[in-house]
Design a protein around this nucleic acid. Structure first.
Lengths: 167, 167
DNA sequence: ATAACTGCAAAACATTTGCATACAG
DNA sequence: CTGTATGCAAATGTTTTGCAGTTAT
């Protein structure tokens, strides 16, 4: 799933071209570099990581251009942005991939993707009740995984809840 | 729902006291000021807003202390933090309030709270499948509300999707 | 008393912006 | 050619940190 068939890459590229043309935006090599870099993997990358990867690949783009291009890619829905609790957005390719939700281990930060059709029903019901046109949603579940090598194992850092109102 | 009965405030306060004692932390007036300020309303406030409100109420606390105290309040689960797409966290009182999810209008930023029991089932199923102990989740739905006075009405800013792969 | 907490200001970090230069149309 | 996009560096906005002074225990 990590690498993408050339055909899909071409599709994605032409979607972006069409979008830029429609908006009277220029088709600069930097923009296509950013697009291709983000479509190279199925990672959830942040803007700086993307900048560094591009640099490492020998593509000279500035951070400003990376941010700028990501904004365009969000607008044409070729990329989605996630906010996983930190103040740093993560970006992920979106074309022809299932819309999924996320499960995050708070110990090792491992990230899993899942999908449950009931969310669609919930979304529709909420839309109807509140008279909204819902465009998208973001569902993240946070917890502890049970992996052997997960820092969870050494849980001296116990949640220390407040179940003691009258202690 | 905005104002809180004194009894609940006392409960919340003693939960915090117990938590601080358990952690060998000091019970400073600043910490209780922050707690009380956030429990005064059902708003979703950011750290700076909280700082300003405290200042206006005549309580002298620094931003650093606000952030610091919010961290403690998150740990004892008296407060929850939300990341609504922007890079600024919002905080909300949590004790004795229903765990709810959010519906956000992308035009006017109006925020609605909802709750659907199916989410609980989804959470349990995901926990079982991925062998996770899920602690909490965050579900936000984004869209357009249908209110008369919502900036949505003047939608010249149409999504401009990329449905034209072969244009 | 004394170790932890506070306020302040500076630092860190992510993101945005302004402006001179480069280049797509 | 022309105006838009780029790169750079400086600005912004949020959160964190270091340190001297203060205070709860």
């Amino acid at each position: 799933m990590s690498t993408l068939p050339q055909q899909k890459l071409d599709e994605v590229r032409s979607i972006f071209e069409a979008f830029l043309k429609k908006r009277n935006k220029r088709q600069t090599p930097e923009r296509f570099s950013v697009l291709e870099e983000i479509y190279k993997t199925d990672d959830h990358v942040d803007a700086d990581e993307l900048y560094l990867r591009l640099k490492q690949d020998g593509t000279r783009v500035s951070r400003a251009t990376v941010y700028n291009t990501l904004e365009l890619l969000l607008e044409c829905e070729l990329v989605v942005r996630h906010q996983f609790g930190k103040n740093q957005a993560k970006y992920e390719r979106a074309y022809s991939y299932w819309q999924h939700d996320h499960l995050i281990c708070m110990d090792c930060n491992e990230l899993f993707e899942f999908c449950d059709p009931r969310l669609q029903s919930i979304q529709e019901m909420v839309a109807e009740i509140y008279e909204f046109e819902i465009k998208h949603h973001s569902l993240n579940m946070y917890g502890h995984c049970i992996r052997e090598n997960c820092p969870n194992r050494s849980s001296d850092d116990e949640p220390a809840k407040a179940e003691a109102a009258g202690e």
